[in-house]
Amino acid sequence: MSWMVWTVPTAVFFSTIAAMLAGMTAWEIVSPTVERNGFLPIATTRGDRLFIGLLSAAYIHLIVVGFLPISIWFALGLSIVWMLVLMHWG
């Protein structure tokens, strides 16, 4: 495993993603999702909104890291807020 050069932050990152997927699966078993129309232009399920959220979070991080002088923690905070908004009203 040493060739995979693990670090604590990346381990946390992948664990979070895995936990999210597990959580979504459990949630889906308890109460199956219904496709609905929110503020997004297309009808989405919960899983779709999670994917859109993750993808846009990745882009938010890239923009902050690459072109803005502010800390990456702002990007993280913004992404979490955005994900919550998206999951609830998207």
């Binding site: 995979m4 050069v5 670090t7």
Partner: peptide
Amino acid sequence: IIPLMTVVNYSVQ
């Protein structure tokens, strides 16, 4: 997935 994880690990080091 294993190679993808490795690439992510490389990218921060």
